[in-house]
Design a protein around this nucleic acid. Structure first.
Lengths: 340, 340
DNA sequence: GTGAAAGCGCTAACAT
DNA sequence: ATGTTAGCGCTTTCAC
């Protein structure tokens, strides 16, 4: 039982195969009567054109790939959902996959002839990005790594991580918080070789001496009890920190709950800010100060960058606006109930 | 600047095109010396085989599609991450996309010649599932809809939603909770036509009269303040419910925070249970009773179902084990600190 | 308006 | 052991 092809349709409709294509693609005038014969043959046989063959011929797959190192971050999922709903309207598919920084992975990617690549990872090496650039596949790079030089055929979407972090840092200053813990997401790897530098961390490193009297960077996983122990040890042995800047809201939530468990008051003793405006951050008590980047804008911009690149070879660099959403977790005196 | 093909490699290496394929696929003996000439030509030209052409010829794409209605549920994202890491080892790609129950969407899917389909949605109609079945694409259906009859060429992964819900219901009974609110995820649509019935809801409907003296089903979105108002109104006007069964942990968390805001004590006044064992549920105070389904088992089983279907045409039906994780949110007297 | 034919880049059967 | 050839199912040019 093999699939129905154009040939079967042509035979049943009593026309040539070319006519069938003309009807399917609606790109040539076909006599009305023939057209309707083709249409009903398609209906009857349940014919669906083979996109693989079409792609081979047209050298277009109508398929994008989104690569990220952050596959189980719900920010990306809902971003992907937004992108997907826009793209499906244009007959485009988008695949999600975890980025791996090695040649055999990249070969797999190249082999599949995606029409475009979205890359959002801080784990990419310069060599890999250059290799991607050389392939000539339209590529939009989401800026999450400060150490890298972006080849000039690659468009850049800057989600404003650096600027968002600056807003957090300055907010901490205004609140006169002086002893700050920065909670990064990753556990430092065994070989200590960190490939990229997250712009948020970079911002912190650039400002910490100017803004704070004490600071420390802690690399953390998603393990609650481990984090709690960490925080407890630091608070007891190293410094009574009065502010925590977390790499995202998930980490911020974990930190908040840890402190509450340890009897450290938020925000009276310690201010907390997160990042992402995750649905969580507004729910907690105290609600968590965070940074919002509109997903709708994100999805729209990233797709338009890709379109411009594909259709007009226009390389662009765009930065998204970021908003600090001040809530109770960071304010020395709590806001009234009128938060958003 | 067009892509490098096998032809270019053959020319540079001074061999026939077939030889290049033999080397690339490593499926025929090739003279060592020729082989190395081919290899270095590949290296030099940066040749990557074209998978589209390969797929057309082999009638295999090495590509699966996972369709769900729940794209921004983080359970699915991490499940997908697990699946992806297993599949990439076998040179398979997996795409994620929101399921849409209409023919033009299905045509897009069929056109792309996926080697296999995973479907996890309660929104699918019988007609659509039958159509998919008729296409003859290996398909694994995740059972999330009780109303549907599964065609007999489709394998079924039962994630145990019904049984998990039963465990929640019986747990409520044991806690002597008698007035139960069931919080479903979806806002009822305008036309009131709900396509599928979630097995959790089904279980609740089947047991409610036997187990409870009062019960009510509320359809809710992810809007916190709306939910809070809803709960407040019901508590005041309809019944002082003493238990909430939420469709998932996200909803459970929203409900918990609502009640806390309203001054209703959990678990003293109201017991809450969630579903999914989301990382959230263990963090809150009180920690939330929930149902766990191992994602590793899920990923492993769903992939093995697909393999059996593809390779041996073996249709199977498997149910995953579910575990009720009892935590403080549902217990009349709180557990000691020794929870997991 | 329509159809034949070449070509997209591969695989695999067949011949040598 | 290697090369020739006929597909895979489509798009598109070109001739009628």
């Amino acid at each position: 039982m093999s699939r129905v092809t154009r040939k079967d349709v042509a035979k049943l409709a009593g026309v040539s195969e070319t006519i069938v294509s003309y009807v399917v693609n609606d790109n040539r005038y076909v006599e009305a009567e023939k057209k309707s014969r083709v249409l009903s043959a398609i209906e009857e046989l349940n014919y669906v054109p083979n996109n693989i063959a079409r792609s081979l011929s047209k050298k277009e797959t109508n398929h994008y790939l989104f690569m990220t190192d952050d596959l189980d971050n719900d920010y990306f999922t809902s971003l992907l959902a937004e992108m997907e709903s826009v793209l499906i309207e244009q007959d485009f598919f988008i695949s999600l996959c975890k980025y791996r920084d090695n040649n055999s992975f990249l070969n797999q990617v190249f082999a599949r002839q995606f029409d475009g690549l979205f890359i959002s990872t801080s784990e990419i090496s310069q060599a890999s990005l250059n290799r991607i650039s050389n392939m000539g596949i339209p590529t939009v790079y989401v800026l999450r790594n400060m150490k890298i030089t972006i080849p000039d055929n690659i468009s850049v979407l800057n989600p404003g991580l650096y600027m968002g972090a600056e807003k957090c840092i300055h907010h901490m200053c205004e609140q006169e918080r002086k002893r700050i813990l920065f909670l990064d997401r990753f556990v430092k790897s065994a070989n200590d070789e960190i490939k990229g530098v997250d712009p948020r961390l970079q911002a912190f490193n650039n400002w910490k001496e100017q803004c704070f009297v004490w600071s420390k960077i802690v690399h953390t996983g998603n393990d609650y009890s481990l984090l709690k122990k960490n925080l407890s040890d630091i608070y007891r042995d190293e410094a009574k920190f009065d502010g925590i800047i977390a790499i995202n809201d998930k980490v911020a939530v974990l930190a908040l709950r840890s402190l509450q468990d340890l009897g450290i008051r938020v925000p009276e003793d310690v201010s907390i800010v997160g990042y992402d405006n995750n649905f969580l951050s507004g729910i907690f008590d105290p609600s968590i100060t965070t940074v919002n980047v509109s997903k709708t804008a994100y999805a729209e911009k990233i797709i338009s960058l890709m379109k411009d690149l594909k259709d007009r070879e226009e390389v662009k660099r765009i930065r998204l606006p970021v908003d600090l959403i001040v809530r109770n977790s960071s304010l020395r005196r709590e806001k009234n109930e009128s938060e958003n």
